[in-house]
Write a protein that binds this DNA or RNA. Structure first.
Lengths: 125, 125
DNA sequence: CCGAGATACTTTGCCTGTCAATGCATTGAC
DNA sequence: GTCAATGCATTGACAGGCAAAGTATCTCGG
């Protein structure tokens, strides 16, 4: 169902995706994993953030001070490690969005996407 | 001058960028490298496709049958290896644009970019 | 009570693309 | 003769993604 997107095309965005999710409120690995899957599915796309990838990204983000974590206090079920975005993380997310926007524009130019390739010629000497 | 874009954010797109350039006509490494730089610069961005990265990508593309190459016949100056996009490469480029478009949409959702986060709540149980 | 399946987190080792560094060869300007 | 620009190519290291495997708890059906 839907296009299978290679996560390699999103390489380097894993941490920012997590931050984007945590901006909506504290969450934990399994939940974020499912959220990402369902968002992708709503876009008609078959994408999943692999667990190994995700948990390693949590580690990095915490080292960088972008998130903090705490063990949940549910009486039943497996224990959950909740993550919370910090102000450092917020800043980083803002920045990531700006960078993403510029990257997007650039790649569109470089790929010569239809929407920007209207003009007949644009070869500079 | 402009934002410095980490090429790592474009990881995996190198080959497609090259194909996009070759669609404009046969070219060679040094030229493509300069074209990319000047396109980025026109976007107000400081991005460069590193030579090592580029030449390795040429290699891969040729192995995949997406491009062919031939030595230029200029009487003077250093020899140039020209590359030409094949129909396989054309197909791949078409595909890449579609994939890119989907990836773009998805990442915008996942990062929670301003333009798509209007609705108040969208948390599913 | 037992097994299957969902929930939930973690580690190991491999693969692949990027890139700094380095090297080679030619040409033209100073 | 030397320096910068052109032009191509290889090497080794690094980092992120991921398959695979492991641990542990809970729930539900039989």
């Amino acid at each position: 169902m839907g296009t299978v997107l290679s996560a390699d095309l999103l390489r380097g965005y894993t941490e920012d995706i997590i931050l984007g999710r945590l901006e909506q409120g504290d969450s934990y690995g399994y939940q974020i994993n499912k959220d990402v899957k369902s968002i992708a599915s709503a876009c008609g796309q078959d994408f999943e953030m692999k667990e190994a990838t995700m948990y390693l990204a949590f580690r990095r983000l915490e080292e960088q001070g972008c998130i903090t974590s705490y063990w949940g206090s549910e009486g039943s079920g497996a224990r959950r490690r909740y993550y919370s975005i910090t102000s450092v993380g917020q800043g980083r997310l803002q920045e990531a969005r700006v960078t993403w926007d510029k990257t997007r524009q650039l790649l569109e130019q470089l790929l010569g996407s239809k929407n920007t390739a209207e003009s007949g010629e644009e070869r500079e000497s």
